[in-house]
Computed example of a mutant assay.
Amino acid sequence: MSVENMPDERLAHFYENVRQQVEADRANKCQFTVGPTVREYADRLRDEMIRRRLKHAPIEWPS
C-alpha cells in the first residue's frame, strides 16, 4: 500500500513508529534505523502527513 492510500491513523502510526525507533537508537547509541531506505520512507510519510495537515513530531536523525 502506498502512503497516499493509507488511512490517516495508519500513516500517523507508521511515522510515529519510525520516529520512536530513531529515538531509541539515539538513546542507546545504536544505528539500526539510519539507512537511506528508512530515511526515504520516513520522508515520504512526513511529506504525506504535511500534505494532509496531520500533526507530527519531527524525526531528529543522528549526525
Rank of each mutant, 00 (worst) to 15 (best):
R53S: 08
E23T: 14
Q21Y: 11
H13S: 08
E16Q: 12
G35A: 10
A27M: 11
P36D: 09
V34M: 13
R39W: 04
D43P: 04
A42W: 00
P7M: 15
S2P: 09
R10F: 05
H56V: 03
D25V: 12
E48A: 09
R39E: 07
R44A: 10
N17T: 02
G35K: 03
P7Y: 11
E40R: 15
Q20N: 12
Q21R: 14
N5H: 15
Q31I: 05
L54Q: 05
L54N: 00
E60H: 09
I50T: 11
T37I: 11
D25K: 13
Y15W: 09
D8M: 09
M49T: 09
N17E: 09
I59P: 06
N28V: 04
I59N: 03
A12G: 03
R10L: 08
K55W: 00
I59C: 02
V18W: 00
W61P: 02
N5A: 13
A42V: 09
P58S: 06
L11Q: 03
T37Y: 15
S63C: 08
L45A: 05
V22M: 00
F32Q: 04
N5E: 12
S63H: 12
R19L: 04
R19W: 00
K29N: 14
D25P: 07
T33V: 06
M6F: 09
V18E: 02
N5G: 11
D47P: 04
T37E: 15
I59L: 07
E16R: 13
H56W: 02
V38G: 09
D47W: 01
C30D: 12
P62F: 00
A12R: 00
V38M: 13
E40C: 14
E23W: 02
R44K: 12
E9F: 14
V18K: 08
Q31M: 04
H13Y: 15
V22P: 00
I59Y: 04
T37M: 15
R19S: 13
D8A: 01
R44M: 10
D47V: 10
E4A: 12
V22G: 01
R46C: 11
Q31V: 06
R26A: 11
C30P: 05
N28A: 12
R44I: 02
R46W: 08
L45M: 08
A12Y: 01
R19N: 09
N28P: 03
E48I: 00
E60R: 06
R46E: 11
E40Y: 15
G35E: 05
R10G: 01
M49A: 10
P58I: 12
Q31S: 10
V34C: 14
D8P: 04
I50C: 10
M1Y: 11
T37D: 15
T33S: 04
N17G: 04
A42S: 07
C30M: 15
N17A: 04
H13W: 15
E4Q: 13
A57T: 06
L11E: 08
R51S: 02
D47F: 00
V3E: 10
H13D: 12
H56L: 07
P62A: 06
M1N: 08
S63I: 11
Y41A: 12
Y15C: 10
V3H: 06
T37A: 15
C30Y: 13
R53H: 13
L45Q: 05
A24Y: 05
A57Q: 07
I50L: 05
L54C: 01
R19C: 09
R26P: 02
E60D: 12
T33A: 03
D43V: 03
N17S: 01
A57Y: 10
R51Y: 03
F32D: 00
A42T: 01
E23H: 06
A27Q: 15
